[in-house]
Amino acid sequence: MHVAIIGGASTIGTTVAYTLSGLAPRLDVSLVDINDGAAWAHGTDIEHASYHFAHAPGADEGHDSETAGSVRSATPEEIAELDPDLLIFNAAAPQPDDATDPSAREAELERNRSIVEDVAESLRPLDPTPLLVVTNPIDRLVYDFYSLLGWPRRYFLGYSLSETARIADGIADLVDAHRTDVYCPTMGEHGEHMIPVFSRARVDGEPIDVTDAERAELMAYVRDIPFEIAEERGVDETSRWVTSAGVSRVVRTMAAAADDSSVDGTGVEADGGDWTFCLSTPLDGEYGLEDVALGVPVDLDADGVAAIHEWDLDDAEAAELERAAESVQADL
């Protein structure tokens, strides 16, 4: 699989490439950026780093010379020549000083919309190709790309797995468990109207009861922690670690689903239980919604969304999903 990261010289773009170089060494990665010098420099440095991945104890055969992929740079004008199997859109306008304020997300739409329009124009020569949007506001930009390109909706994805990791951390603290034993998918908007699906939450495979007060506490935590991190980290940085790990999980799931029938498109072995994750994608009647992109439970294959699951939600979750749709549609 050949993955092209648009905005590849950014902190998230380069960290995704580095993560894939270590965890999915068979993939070819192109860092596409208007700053071709920076993209080349990062790509070359990651290529050098792959030497150590290949020779570390426990390195698998994917790092050997016959199967190892590459990390290269390219300019936006070269996208059509790359003929990628997966596009990751991570280009964005510079962050303002008030980016640590939750209300600042509203301004991101206008700042990044013109970039989406330019990139969509450069993608027109391609056959329909899965496009994973990482730039905020994710749900709105997913729908913008869908509207501009006119490809089948299964090719459009929006990243929203950071909230899943953060709500797992909050639940783990609440019940004194390890975060990797917690499963609680998050639907809805990537932002204010995210929806941890507590009705499907599991700890070590077992359902848990979450009171209304605990729900409110967990929601406050998962909404606030990104901005607390950003305030301490500074606006010149991004949430590169959790985002890059989540994006890499999506990429590896798509690659594995294409190559190995024992993987079911959710990123786990076919008999590994219900660990379905949610990504933003355009809806056409699912959950009674249309003309909007929201995070919903999906199965993936090499071409993007293979299936959308319509879960039975409790009343609070269903109402919040309606509010998320209204919020996104108001901006669209």
Results as ranks from 00 to 15, higher is better:
G37P: 02
M254K: 00
W275M: 02
R105Q: 11
V235T: 14
S244D: 03
A330Y: 14
R154Y: 07
E326C: 04
D173K: 15
A293N: 05
D301G: 06
D260R: 12
V251P: 04
E189A: 05
P152G: 08
D224A: 15
D33A: 15
H55K: 11
R72E: 05
H63T: 11
M1G: 12
G246P: 04
E81F: 02
A255R: 01
G13C: 04
A74W: 06
G150W: 10
R72D: 06
D303T: 07
D97A: 11
A270W: 01
P57V: 03
W311D: 05
D36K: 13
S73H: 11
E61D: 10
E110T: 08
S248A: 12
L132A: 07
D169E: 15
G62L: 09
S103A: 14
E228H: 15
M194I: 10
W275D: 01
A270C: 01
G22L: 08
Y18F: 09
H2S: 08
P102Q: 06
F198R: 05
G37I: 13
T180E: 15
T75Q: 08
R113G: 00
A177C: 12
E326N: 11
G69W: 02
V222T: 15
V175F: 08
Y146L: 06
F198L: 10
S199V: 11
V3T: 03
L283N: 01
D264A: 01
D85E: 06
D60I: 12
E237D: 11
D45E: 13
R153L: 08
P137F: 08
A177V: 04
V296G: 01
D224G: 12
V328C: 08
A177N: 06
I308Q: 09
Y159H: 14
A54M: 07
